[in-house]
Design a binder for these strands. Structure first.
Lengths: 217, 217, 217, 217
DNA sequence: TATGAATGAGCTTTCATTCAT
DNA sequence: GATGAATGAAAGCTCATTCAT
């Protein structure tokens, strides 16, 4: 999982089908047997394909897992972007921050909870490489949020980037954390707390407030 | 890394020394070659010890890595607790939230930045098991923060737990994330943003404010 | 040598060849270096094959040795059955017992003496598990002899089974014992003694004689 | 278990005690964990002794197991000899063969059944070396029986040796076989069958009868 | 003498990868 | 292209044996 290996782009229809089978099989094996139990031979067997064929389409084991991760992240990105933009569009610019945040959170929790087993393997077992797929994913979400924040009154690009970075990671980790940890309180509580956390922050920062120092100076 | 295996308690001074060498070697190999490159033979060689000796002190490979992780987490816990309690003690109960948060953040960033390579391997490569060492670590920090929140006016135990869970994970992930990602803005910016995020949230929630709903109720 | 593991059934001609090479190599190593000196690596090397290939055809070390043993026992069983049935068929029902026994013994001694080195390792070094291959082998011979005894006037099934058990083990152990121990007297002597032992017993028991008690009843 | 290694003869009382503890521990480990589970470290631990001390008294692992076997065989030999001689002494020279055989068999079955677990490990798992302890044991019993047979009318030394060899192995294997196999018939049946087998043979051979040929010549 | 820490060769087994068919 | 047999390095771990204390 160095993240550098890429699969070859298949041209034929037949090829596409094989790639699909292999990726699907890899995902299944990953969920069923964990990262350590996922060998190329097992993936090939689960795909009903020979090990040699697997290497026709992927340069190495890493590339297969990277592809699984990529697809997961692509799906996430599509859903997250849509949920975020929808929530933002629906909510009034000023007082609607909380509603927008809340809507996004609900959508995220739905999304993550849909496939918790795969989420678990990805978060808990897949080695993540610096500058790898996950970083790029988060970076794109950062950009999206940055853009919106700028339209909502963020005081400049740099502050907007910092705010986006802060908010995106907070929401990402706490929503996945809730799904995976299943702490002792109901989902609505996380939604409430996270909404308070994030919306309060954004409201304060977008209404021109300087960063909170140690009390009113 | 099931986290269940423990090493035998060494009795002799000599034994302690061997355990130290092995654990130190394991840490080095881990940092130098990554999780997948860390074999028992390599650890033993790095420790200047035979493979058999390693198994005299640790029941299996897992136990060695668990020990490395444990020591890291223990050190973290000590520092984090102390930083948190110091910051809390110094700050005035009401308006001092931001100061307390800021102080804790500074200490955390110092701590994590001290050994970034080890932090990276632990965060990015060590498989985390649910209910494992890291979960227990976070749980203890949760308890600590919960306690303080209750003395600071949290409206009951359950809300305090939810707030603690929220705040602890936020701070944990964003501080480590900053150290590992090295995004394009300076450290003081993260501190400012995180302070605004967390202190704003706590102030709102501790001053009796109900969770922000969609607009002014 | 738990005896439970079986090898996969080879489909290709090529596969059969590999299995043959591995089994042959295992037999050689077993004879040359004894049970304790027989490692999977050594077997693979002797077969001119990689360790990995061995495991393509056999689930574990045990299965290889079990296969060697199975083949030996199968060959034995075929020969022993045929020799026994031939000798029985040739001999007259009543007075021919001695001839039948003698014929069987000659065949057995020929058979065991043909590969004394392998016989030695199997008898002296291969661990035998109760209910394992060897027990099953003996059981099948028991059945065969029981059947013949019943046609020769044995007084009921239970007595026949007991007689068969007695005779089969006697003959098995003394013939192999003679081949392996090479005691100081010639082969014809063992044949004579064993013929007297077994034929006398069978004649007495089959002619309606009750078990010899202490003195003349 | 090459059978060539011998332990040093201990001179001190202290030494004797250690040897005793080690041998006893070896026997226990052997019974409890089988041959493969019997390591020198485990024996030493079970004996409450250090591995180093074990090597003070035994040149290698083999010597320890050989000592266990030796003691077992010595005990067997004592019992077997006594049982045999008692039975022979009690029985009348001519017609008493069956009684003598029966008495010996009863004693043997009692003896073997007393410690079936140890017997099983020794018979089924301990590698036997040609010309090793067991061969010597059997040889001494052979001598004993040969002697008695000569006093009972055996036609010369060579025939007596052959008869003894035949009878001793038969009785040894069938009695241990009965104890270990536990076939489906009661003990008295084996005793009856074996008595018929052996006594019939001896009576025939001792009364001057030539070896049974193919029917009356 | 007794200890027990230390050794290190060697074991069984796995698996990413290759290549002849 | 597709196959799957074959590879072989390397993994985790054990254990008979040694030797400094």
């Amino acid at each position: 999982m160095t993240g550098r290996a890429r699969r070859r782009e298949p041209r034929q229809e037949r090829s596409r089908a094989m790639v699909e089978r292999i990726v699907a099989a890899a995902r299944e094996v990953l969920v069923a047997r964990g990262y350590d139990g996922t060998s190329t031979n097992r993936i090939a067997a689960a795909a009903g394909v020979s090990p040699g064929s697997l290497y026709q389409y992927f340069p190495d084991k890493d590339a297969v897992l990277t592809e699984v991760l990529d697809r997961y992240l692509d799906a996430m990105e599509a859903r997250v972007s849509r949920a975020f933009l929808d929530s933002v569009a629906t909510a009034a610019p000023g007082p609607g921050t909380a509603a927008a945040v809340r809507g996004t959170l609900q959508a995220l929790l739905d999304t993550f909870a849909a496939e918790p087993d795969l989420l678990r393997v990805i978060v808990e077992q897949l080695p993540r490489s610096p500058g790898g797929r996950r970083a790029a994913f988060a970076g794109r979400i950062d950009d999206l949020v940055t853009t919106v924040l700028l339209t909502r009154g963020a005081p400049g690009t740099e502050p907007a980037r910092a705010m986006a970075w802060t908010v995106v990671r907070t929401v990402e980790h706490l929503t996945t954390g809730y799904v995976l940890e299943r702490p002792g309180f109901p989902r609505e509580v996380v939604v409430d707390e996270l909404t308070a956390l994030v919306a309060g922050y954004l409201d304060a920062r977008l209404s021109g407030g300087r960063v909170a120092s140690d009390g009113p100076s």
